[in-house]
Design a protein around this nucleic acid. Structure first.
Length: 274
DNA sequence: AGCGTCACCCGGACGC
DNA sequence: TGCGTCCGGGTGACGC
């Protein structure tokens, strides 16, 4: 499932062009919409009309969103569970899950494929109506341990659901949350306002380390969808239940936390009486 | 505020 | 071989 490192990796490829021409500067001629419910805003008809002849000015990421500032308005795409974005050369055979295809003046196509159809596409005048709800970027320089500390203290939730909450912190999903908590040696059910300063610092480090390692390996390819990365070979806890902890040998456990599969090491991440 | 639940989806795993 | 069933997971809506 595309989380920050996967979205960032795909974003960099689009920006560079990766063999094809870079996406910034390219013009959209028209769009093919094979699954209209992908278009979240505006209406499909309005979207189709307004996207014509727009120039893609830049390619960015905010949280798990792709952000494409246009000469008029901003295109935003969220991959959710099973989405992928590819920049393809003229004549590339279409895939079975290509849902929305942007035909570019260059002959290339920007293809949004999404097997499970949960992704979303937006065309907004003001992207902040969407992006403004997001919490800080965990890799930004102004995301300091102090920022994390004060945000943690203002909630009394378990760490796991809090870290998954995009308005608390933008970009973590199930994989990187579990990986970050293991690095920080914190139990997923630990209450956010119970951490001392050392533990906050360790959590900050754990979040950044997990994300940086994901980025270094171009993200994780755990579904049949995104195939670009190999971070899945370096998971310490995610989908490793029943296997030995790489740090201490204890068997990794899987529990449900707010209906989310949660993987952790009972020895490295002890339950704390708070 | 935070939690539980449901809905949206469908490929793949599993059981028979 | 082929069918039926369940699961996972990001997010938003809704109710408590």
């Amino acid at each position: 499932m595309p989380e920050l490192p996967e979205v960032e990796t795909i974003m960099r490829n689009l920006r560079r062009g990766n063999g094809a021409s870079p996406l910034p500067g390219q013009r959209i001629e028209r769009v093919t919409i094979r699954w209209p419910r992908h278009i979240a805003e505006p209406s499909v008809g309005s979207f189709r009309r307004r996207i014509r002849d727009r120039t893609i000015v830049d390619v960015r990421r905010r949280g798990k969103y792709f952000v494409f500032p246009l000469d008029h308005g901003t295109l935003l795409i969220h991959l959710r569970m099973s989405g992928d974005l590819q920049l393809t050369e003229r004549g590339t055979p279409s895939g079975p899950y290509d849902r929305t295809v942007f035909h570019l003046k260059s002959g290339q196509q920007l293809r949004f494929s999404d097997a499970r159809k949960l992704g979303k596409v937006f065309l907004l005048d003001d992207p902040e109506t969407l992006l403004g709800k997001l919490g800080p970027e965990p890799l930004d320089a102004d995301f300091t341990p102090q920022v994390l500390s004060s945000r943690l203290a203002s909630h009394r939730r378990a760490l796991k659901p809090l870290l998954l909450d995009q308005s608390f912190l933008a970009g973590l999903g199930n994989i990187y949350t579990d990986e970050a908590l293991h690095r920080a040696q914190l139990h997923p059910l630990r209450r956010s306002d119970s951490l001392n300063q050392d533990e906050v610092n360790t959590l900050w480090r754990g979040i950044r380390d997990a994300l940086y390692q994901g980025l270094r390996h171009n993200g994780a390819s755990i579904d049949w969808v995104y195939r670009g990365g190999n971070f899945q070979h370096y998971f310490r806890v995610y989908q490793r239940s029943g296997k030995p902890c790489l740090a201490c040998g204890t068997t990794i456990e899987r529990i449900l936390v707010n209906q989310r599969g949660t993987h952790y090491c009972p020895t490295c991440q002890p339950e704390v009486s708070t």
